[in-house]
Amino acid sequence: MTAAVPPTGDGLGDRRVVTLPAVPALGGLYVKGLAGVATSVVGRRLGRGSGALPDVAYEVAGVRADAARLTAYQHLVGESASDALPAGFVHVLAFPLAVAVMTTPGFPFPLVGAVHVANRVEQHREARLDEPLTLRAWSQGLRSHRAGTQAELVVTASDADGERVWTGVSTYLAKGVHLTDRPGPADDPAEERTPFVAPVPTGRWQLPADEGRLYAAVSGDRNPIHVSSLAAKGFGFPRAIAHGMDTAARALAAVGAAHGPAFVWTAEFARPVLLPGSPAVRVARDVDGFAYAVWDARSGKPHLTGTVRPV
């Protein structure tokens, strides 16, 4: 890590910006993340997490996508292998920075075991394979949730001129971790949602048993609950589960070129897709853009829902 620079006022607030020489390797961060599980066991026993988010933002400049990895990602999620980076691929590119924020000492809950409950990406324009991107990640919005503690991981991608091309906000929930100094659950939009009624499907996905490993290979996200059914059992799932961002990226790919270069892509994750799985899918135009839903074809219960709308 190199010298800190002053905050620039583009959503960073008072956070210290720590410039990293390169996007960190996820393997090492997961080791730190697992160490976090050990400390959190203590925390859980005490029934509380630390009360504040770290006031740091990590930044890496000159990040370029690797063509082979981009192609593998595009083929896996059903995108055309163009030189434009799919919105989900920018998430993947910056994911290690978000993980670095979550494994910063003092982050209120451990990375491993935290549940990705919602995601919102605003793409201002398409990022291209051949352009260097400046990526930044920080955390915000720490709050109590009925089931635990929730925080948002913010990632931005800017081009060489400093223009923002992409902003992602990932909401994570640490179940069973409660903040002693922030009592009472905050507003929970999930609880206000109308009950899910399975619509007429437009498709059905066949996700093989090794889908988690395949997405781990292109995303670097080797969270054990996605790659090993044994590890998944340890976290209370009968089998390995699909990455939420894999399924959301498939829905975005199904919308196709109709989303245009600038759009907002949201995902709310309900029940995870157990692997192998063949969930039912609907991706269709609605009043403004596209809405999608992925659900268990047999039980009719939702896996994820979301929208892709023009900015």
């Binding site: 059903g78 007429v200 059905r204």
Partner: peptide, 15 residues
């Protein structure tokens, strides 16, 4: 199966 939907032609026609 239709590559973009994963549904067979029969399942599509059933809809």
């Amino acid at each position: 199966d239709e590559p973009r939907t994963g549904l067979s032609m029969g399942e599509h026609q059933a809809l």
